[in-house]
């Protein structure tokens, strides 16, 4: 059996990659994908500990996260399409009207 520390490292790595994507990329779709990466990193973490403790609590949480991710993507797609229609592109730095 693989030690849980390895999974933690993997999870942390994927999480950092996702964060990096959010902070650096300007494409709204990349935002969406990076968020998926973040959620998956968290899921891996949950499932790894679920195995360590020998119960399914972590797995159950992971299931909820999946449902949440699916919903989030559905909404996100809608937002991105509207963004695209209104600003002729999916660059998030273009849409700066919602301030002050």
């Amino acid at each position: 059996m693989v030690p849980p520390e390895y999974y933690l490292l993997l999870s942390a790595a994927v999480f950092c990659i996702g964060l990096f994507g959010i902070l650096t990329r300007r494409n709204a779709l990349l935002f969406l994908m990076s968020v998926e990466l973040l959620l998956n990193a968290a899921n891996v973490n949950l499932v790894a500990f679920s195995q360590v403790w020998g119960n399914v609590t972590g797995q159950t949480f992971a299931l909820f996260t999946m449902a949440l991710a699916a919903a989030e993507v559905a909404i996100g797609i809608g937002i991105i399409l509207v963004l695209y229609r209104n600003f002729d592109g999916v660059d998030v730095t273009d849409a700066t009207t919602m301030r002050w």
Binding site: L32, V47, A70, I77, L81
Partner: peptide, 25 residues
């Protein structure tokens, strides 16, 4: 990690749903 059900869900929901949506977008 012996979470076969979750693996199945991962493929169904993420790859079958989320990824398809993103592709559409």
């Amino acid at each position: 990690l012996q979470a076969e059900f979750l693996a199945a869900m991962q493929i169904l929901v993420y790859v079958g749903g989320v990824l398809i949506l993103i592709t559409f977008a």
